[in-house]
Computed example of a mutant assay.
Amino acid sequence: MQKSKTETLIQKYLSHQLNEQELEELKLWIEEDASHREIFVKLLSLHHVNNQLNLLHQFDKEASWKSIQHRCNRSHTIHRRIAIYSSAAAIAILIGITSILYFNGQKPVPAIAQNEQPQQSPLPKNTETPKATWVQANHSVVPLYENQREINGSHINNGEIIFPQESDSPHKPKLATELLQNKIIVPKGSEYAIVLADGTKVKMNADSHIDFPVQFGDTREVTLEGEAMFEVTHDEARPFIIKTHDHAIYVLGTTFNISAYPDEELSVTLIEGKLKVNAPSGEYYLLPGEHYSSAQSKVSKVDTEFYISWTEGAMEFDAMPFPLLIARLSRCYNVDIQIASKELETMKFTGVIFRNKPLDFALDIIHRVSDVKFEKKGETILVKKQ
């Protein structure tokens, strides 16, 4: 296919003027080479940005363009991620990779069928609503709020709890740490941060919990289920160990992300430093920019932003299976979303959703740019093929 012909087909696609034969030609060109798909996705994402400006009350075009230039210059290639930022708002775009969807010029319709739409909001900001729960060593349960006064020597502020630091009492006698275990539980629809006794920072994602001692001994060991970003304080004499699923991650001092939700693969992404993963299949050593996957039992080089973007208020996807996308939305917004059409289970998506936008906004974006629809049934949202 000649370049001029390709340009004509893309232009007609964007203006909704393709006939069936031309649409098939465009599909063949896109599937012919991975670079073709990347070019098409980039152009399509920019086109949808222009079409969806009416969804935003404020849009700083200059800041948005600078952001595009920054992200492109950083890699000097066309990223498969579709994300455009602005100082006032951000646009979420999801593109189905398994199929090329042709949109007619119909007027927008509600993302969720029926009049009964769920009233969702961004991450809880009401200080009267607990963002996490602290199960203390004596089994007492303490709700944790956005801002709170000191509790048992621990300071709480801006969604973060700082436990008494070892550096403040260097000569304090060691405790029987195996008998004095804390647990922080973060529910669906929330996030929370903690600073452990050794100064290690942990940012926890929704539907996650971590077990850790009141005070560390000769080793520093915690147990995680869910997802968390760690910034481990360096201490060569005491390795930091995270146990999750049937794995153990050994750290000296580094920054990394772990995702270990039940019924999902365990993944470890290293940002800086070094670490070792002990898995049933063997030992794996990670360098910065590398990612371990339990499903593939291997280490690979990745774009780490796909794995840590949630810590900055976004969820980025790169060819993510549709069921995993739905699971993340359910955790993020604390709502039950179920796939009702089996054919959707094989779809994959690339894109980004921003956590400061309500669920309706995210679902509306998915509905507009993909071949799915949402229906409310009681307290459940069903996802069906359009």
Rank of each mutant, 00 (worst) to 15 (best):
F230N: 09
E150Y: 00
S293Y: 01
K125V: 10
L28E: 12
P239K: 12
A362T: 15
H57W: 10
I326Y: 03
K27C: 15
Q2E: 04
V142P: 00
V335C: 03
K276W: 08
F354H: 04
A89Y: 12
G351W: 04
I161Q: 03
L28W: 06
K3G: 09
W65S: 05
E227G: 05
D364Y: 04
Y284K: 05
P239C: 13
F103N: 09
F212L: 02
E32D: 12
K243W: 12
L18T: 06
A89K: 12
S169E: 13
E283S: 14
W29A: 01
T380Y: 04
P323V: 12
V195L: 01
F230R: 08
H245D: 13
H209C: 15
E221Q: 12
P323Q: 13
I112F: 06
K385M: 07
I258D: 05
G289D: 03
V277A: 08
R355G: 03
I30N: 11
E305Q: 07
E225N: 14
I151R: 15
T177M: 02
V222S: 04
C332M: 14
Q120D: 06
K243T: 13
M315I: 08
F163G: 03
T244M: 05
P288D: 06
H47Q: 05
E345A: 10
T311N: 15
P110I: 06
Y307I: 01
L224D: 03
S75G: 01
V251H: 05
T304V: 03
L44R: 15
Q119C: 11
Y284R: 02
I151A: 14
K376M: 10
A89L: 11
D33R: 02
S67D: 02
V251F: 06
S87A: 15
S281Y: 06
R355V: 04
A111V: 03
L56H: 15
S86I: 07
Y102P: 05
I365Q: 14
L53G: 06
T200V: 05
R74W: 11
S86G: 13
A237N: 02
S293E: 00
Y285I: 04
A137Y: 11
E316S: 12
L196Y: 09
V299S: 02
F322S: 13
V186N: 14
E316V: 09
N356M: 10
I112T: 04
P239L: 12
S190F: 03
R37K: 12
I249A: 07
F317A: 04
V202Q: 02
E375V: 11
C72W: 15
V202M: 07
E166K: 09
E379P: 02
G289L: 00
S86E: 09
K107L: 09
R331Y: 01
K276H: 11
S121F: 14
I210D: 01
M315R: 00
K373L: 14
S67A: 08
D364H: 09
K384S: 14
D33Q: 05
Y145D: 03
P143R: 09
K66L: 10
L196E: 08
I366P: 09
F59K: 00
E25I: 10
E166R: 09
L196N: 10
Y333L: 12
E32L: 08
P288I: 01
A111H: 03
A193Y: 05
D318K: 05
G313E: 03
R238D: 02
I339Y: 04
G273S: 07
T269P: 05
